[in-house]
Design a binder for these strands. Sequence first.
DNA 1: TAAATATATTTTACAAAGTAGAACAAATGA
DNA 2: TCATTTGTTCTACTTTGTAAAATATATTTA
Lengths: 105, 105
Amino acid sequence: MRQPSQLGEFEHLLLLTLAQLKGKSYGTEIRKTLKQLINRDSSIGALYATLERMEKKGFISSTLGEPTAERGGRAKRYFELSAEGKQALRETQQQLKTMWQGLEL
Amino acid sequence: MRQPSQLGEFEHLLLLTLAQLKGKSYGTEIRKTLKQLINRDSSIGALYATLERMEKKGFISSTLGEPTAERGGRAKRYFELSAEGKQALRETQQQLKTMWQGLEL
DNA sequence: TAAATATATTTTACAAAGTAGAACAAATGA
DNA sequence: TCATTTGTTCTACTTTGTAAAATATATTTA
């Protein structure tokens, strides 16, 4: 069985994106940020599916915002890192640090 | 579509293990090393399946050794990081470095 | 030398994560 | 009201991750 802190590749990147965005942020913004930071493309479907799975695991939480007064200003769903999510990031980071120890590639 | 350098979580760890082991190494040894380094358990099936997939992608290569003169000394299959595998590791590392930039968790 | 035992890999089957695109929802502007 | 815009949800499928059983092949021992 997979341990609770084990993050999939895309899960890992999304959590880091949320960390970078600090506070709350929503789908399109998250997607754009990931693209800007490391040029990683992601479909909207992939994004939400992964966010949903991580919410179920408790790594993030989401809240529905208010509609805004702009064209197409539909209510946004804001996502936020949870304490468990931060912990998972720290553990993953620590593991990778160990695995890289002494390597020169 | 997934880019060539994109590594799954377990793929990533296995490539790093091969890098740590330097030179050639075989299944059981790889498994033991991963356990020692970061206490990560993996079934033999998971290990070989992932190694095989990565060989197909060109991240590693494998060669069959000679049987050894010890009880149960069946011929071992040795795995080795390829140039493409090293490159994938470097790119992944660089991406994560960027994603972590400025974060304090 | 046949059976037991040890080391190692391969096969099989399934669960979880990753992915894309269409469908849907809800707002404003014309 | 209908076209347009921004945003989320649904659907279908591929790839990765996983465990356990089956198989292979060597030595030791009865």
